[in-house]
Simulated assay, not measured.
Amino acid sequence: MRKVTLSQLFQHELVQKYLNRSGVVHAISTAYHAFSLAKQHGVNPDLATKAALLHDIGHYTWYTDGKWDYALYKENDIHAIKGAERAHKLLIELGEDPRDAKEIALAILLHTDSYLPEGQLQLLPLQQVVALADEADEEPGGLHHYRQLDYSTACSRIKNLDRWVDAYYAAANLKHSV
């Protein structure tokens, strides 16, 4: 049984604050990609969708003269570090299993290597799924962070994804009980 749902996360005021900054549509789309990729890669879809939904909650807005400065962002950003910290604290406060909260936070931390020195990371499967899901929704120049969606539709999409995750677990439990 899931301790924290995507709907609970999405409706939390902290998540709303930071997703509105980093892109609600991108977060939801990335969570949908993560669900599909998790099934393909044998990864827990509950953890994958939560990490994908929250992967950009560490964003800071980088502006120069009132305009988004993508170059400044790329040069100075550490959103994955801040996002992992925020997500972990929030998940623990909401009652998520501490081991799961840590796995989700680590996937957020490692969803991008933009803040790391050059080199190859050896990602665990959950971390790889979240990174691939993020890449699947990216647009040049960070435009994926600016697509718009009204709150009601966003909530509906999140509830739908919750149903998919629940159905996945219901089907898995049926297989194991037969």
Rank of each mutant, 00 (worst) to 15 (best):
M1D: 11
R2G: 03
V4Y: 07
T5S: 15
L9A: 01
Q11S: 14
Q11V: 12
H12W: 05
H12R: 06
E13P: 03
V15G: 03
Q16H: 10
Q16K: 12
Q16F: 04
N20W: 12
N20Q: 14
N20S: 12
S22R: 07
S22C: 09
G23D: 11
V24N: 05
H26W: 07
A27V: 02
T30E: 08
A31D: 00
A31R: 02
H33G: 06
A34D: 05
F35A: 01
F35C: 01
S36I: 12
S36K: 12
H41N: 15
P45W: 10
P45F: 10
D46S: 13
T49D: 09
K50E: 06
K50G: 00
L53A: 05
L53Y: 04
G58C: 00
Y60H: 08
Y60Q: 07
W62D: 00
W62M: 03
W62F: 15
G66P: 11
W68G: 08
Y70H: 15
A71M: 09
A71I: 13
L72F: 00
L72K: 03
K74F: 00
E75T: 01
N76G: 06
N76S: 08
H79Q: 01
H79P: 06
A80S: 11
A80V: 02
G83W: 10
G83V: 06
K89I: 15
K89F: 09
L90M: 00
E93H: 01
E96F: 06
R99S: 11
R99W: 08
A101E: 02
E103S: 13
I104Y: 01
A105K: 02
L106V: 11
A107L: 05
A107K: 06
I108P: 05
L109G: 01
T112F: 01
T112Q: 04
E118L: 08
Q120A: 09
Q122A: 14
L124D: 09
Q127W: 05
V129N: 07
L132C: 09
L132M: 15
A133H: 03
D134G: 02
E135Q: 15
A136E: 09
D137Y: 10
E138K: 15
P140Y: 06
G142A: 04
G142L: 02
L143M: 14
L143N: 13
H145W: 04
Y146I: 14
Y146Q: 15
R147W: 11
D150P: 09
Y151S: 11
T153Q: 13
T153Y: 08
C155M: 11
S156E: 13
I158N: 01
I158F: 07
K159E: 12
K159T: 10
N160D: 14
N160S: 10
D162W: 08
R163Y: 13
V165P: 03
D166V: 10
A167S: 13
Y168K: 06
A170F: 14
K175C: 12
S177P: 03
